[in-house]
Design a protein around this nucleic acid. Sequence first.
DNA 1: CGGTATGTTGAGAACATTCAAGCCCCGTGG
DNA 2: CCACGGGGCTTGAATGTTCTCAACATACCG
Lengths: 231, 231
Amino acid sequence: MNTVNKSLKLNTRDRNILVKTPFLANLGSHTLNRMLEIVTVSGFEARDILFREGEAAEYFYCVLSGYVRLYRLNKDGREADIRVCGPGDTVAECLLYKGDTYRYNAQAAEPVTLARFELQKVREMAEREQDVAKAVIECLSTHLMSTMDCVANDRLQTAPQRVAHYLLDQCGSEECASASIRLPFQKSLLAGKLGLAPEALSRAFSSLRRAGVTVRGRVIQISDVSALKQI
Amino acid sequence: MNTVNKSLKLNTRDRNILVKTPFLANLGSHTLNRMLEIVTVSGFEARDILFREGEAAEYFYCVLSGYVRLYRLNKDGREADIRVCGPGDTVAECLLYKGDTYRYNAQAAEPVTLARFELQKVREMAEREQDVAKAVIECLSTHLMSTMDCVANDRLQTAPQRVAHYLLDQCGSEECASASIRLPFQKSLLAGKLGLAPEALSRAFSSLRRAGVTVRGRVIQISDVSALKQI
DNA sequence: CGGTATGTTGAGAACATTCAAGCCCCGTGG
DNA sequence: CCACGGGGCTTGAATGTTCTCAACATACCG
């Protein structure tokens, strides 16, 4: 099923991305080299399944390029995204402490490149090396905070509010009156990330038109940032 | 506002609870003693606010008895629970890596006793002591998994399904045809935990009557566990 | 230029929320 | 022990939001 393109060795470009990743950026040079020794790179095509819920978990991943969708199914077969991982994000890091099966499905939303680490090896390194343990704590903390934010947003905000919130996040803290954003992925993926059906995202965008939001393809113009904050 | 009842020293009962907590249970005796030296105990009355979103974060907590509600407000003042912490759960552990302000509000849902640690001291210990770092990783992993489950459940399940899921969780993996549960807290707290308005929980319970669920006060009878799994 | 995937729009249904009213349980005090 | 009061819980009705399904439009890619 998966048209996997594995290369045991990192190329220079992937290596440069990987070492700037939050997970590896703060390691000492000794442990960084140890990590680079055990990493392998794997590529997936759009819609390839990386792993499925319940499968034996052997690896944890760090996204180098592209986006990966983590999702679960209910028994009717309906899918719900739990998280969307982009460059720099780690996948399945919660299994570093314990757990021998994946807790959700992972699918490439587009062609992706991933750094792959054997869970067992990273576990052992985290036990021995302070800086690896610290990197794991950092990953887990960051991810936990964003997941708790996700719960809060799901429970507090309507669809247009979630979209406005996402757009303001993307703008960053620039104090501009207007802004322009290019979505890094398809709208259907954004919908899943925000816990919405694609139709609901579409409707949210059109309801934001009155707040000065113009959508054309992946490019989104925001004429009045402060108006968007009032939503 | 808070009728806080602080005792710098742990009493024997609290100490026994604390050392069995997931956070402390696996520490070596040396580090365990260090942790017990820096801990203080604080008590709160029902509805007391432990801290508010945005406040400077000085402590992280471990619940010894009672339940604590973590929640956020939207700008209309509506509250949404992010998490309900019971005995053994840690609060604000995601700030151990970084972050100097609390990310949500915390309120005692009933009279509670908490073990309190200075974030800065635990940070320092996690940097030096392997077993503290490991305990932090364990806490974060467990919490992250349950929060991701929460996102998935919110997005996949209807109110009756969430309640059924909670009840089956409480039953444990006992293979009984029937079971009886006593809720450890008020129904309104359960509603918040499941991301529902209290009325929605009530309606969910009545819709589960046809599946053999009988509610009387805090006591819930389940006549057919397997039927509940079909919901 | 055509075809497929992606996105939009409409209508209807399902689900949850809100507000309001009433009930029940439980603890207090007589 | 009982009466009372109050908070928590339940129920009803109306509202709002999102989902689903279907049809249509648009964009993208060969």
